[in-house]
């Protein structure tokens, strides 16, 4: 059995629900599983949120707030927590993590992957490249039937910052929908989650970026409404619950998940 966690940075129901008939995989998975809005208790900042999701710790506990602190890039070693992959690996599960953007460049565990544009894809070509490269690597891993794969796509966040309220946003949701359809074929259990939602810049919970950037005007920013779709029973109410949901599922699925002890 493989448990697949697909992270989609900045995915929001504001785009998915009104366009559900054009997003057939989202629609299918929402139908066979359960879906809800996760209201964040913390500031909707990606570095911190992905860290919470995969460590089960609150920002006060993991103390990881941003990609850069005091002008220095934060690295995995700066964050003094064990992630789900660290813990399950020690318990003899076959666990992989691919392109997890709690640090820049994104973090990988038990797999070799060079992220596109250091995990900060800027142009349509790079967005497409990230989509293709992450998907292709994820499929390569899934064919090895690991117990758990956690994989994150970061491109929607960049696209929405610069193109919020433009038709191009839905176009990229359709592409994400298509790759979800490919990955999910390999999964028995799944969680699809975003680290925060998205909205007009003026309505945003936090302005993560200035209004004008060298890459253009910022039109949208983060809100506290993340998406969740899953076919597991564990009641996920907040970001940190994803960690506990995975632990619980592995424990209950003992004997089904690889060589877990």
């Amino acid at each position: 059995m493989t448990f697949l966690v697909i992270g989609i940075d900045a995915a929001t129901w504001k785009i998915i629900k009104p366009n559900i008939n054009e997003l057939k995989n989202f629609r299918r998975l929402m139908k066979i599983g359960r879906y809800k809005t996760l209201i964040l208790n913390e500031k909707p900042i990606s570095a911190s949120a992905w860290c919470s999701i995969f460590s089960g710790k609150t920002p006060e506990e993991h103390k990881h707030k941003a990609f850069v602190e005091n002008g220095n890039l934060k690295t995995r070693d700066d964050i003094k927590v064990d992630f789900i992959w660290d813990i399950l690996h020690k318990q003899n599960y076959d666990v992989r993590a691919l392109n997890i953007p709690f640090v820049i460049p994104p973090y990988n565990f038990n797999c070799k992957f060079k992220p596109v544009g250091y995990g900060l894809p800027e142009t349509p070509d790079e967005w497409q490249e990230e989509l293709e490269k992450v998907t292709s690597k994820a499929i390569e891993i899934l064919e090895e039937k690991p117990d758990l794969l956690c994989v994150v796509y970061s491109l929607l966040d960049r696209i929405q910052h610069f193109h919020w309220n433009e038709p191009i946003v839905l176009e990229w949701y359709k592409r994400i929908d298509s790759v979800i359809g490919k990955l999910i074929l390999y999964a028995d259990k799944f969680i699809i989650i975003s680290d925060h939602g998205f909205c007009d810049r003026d309505d945003a919970e936090v302005q993560t970026l200035p209004e004008k950037t060298p890459r253009g005007e910022i039109k949208g920013d983060h809100d506290k409404e993340a998406i969740l779709i899953t076919n597991i029973d564990y009641d996920i109410e907040k970001l940190q619950d994803v960690f506990y949901a995975i632990m619980e599922e592995m424990k209950n699925g003992q004997g089904n998940y690889g060589n877990g002890i």
Partner: peptide, 15 residues
Amino acid sequence: DEEKVKERLRALGYL
């Protein structure tokens, strides 16, 4: 590499 990452972060408005 670190400088290239920072350039990208600046271009995107993070720095």
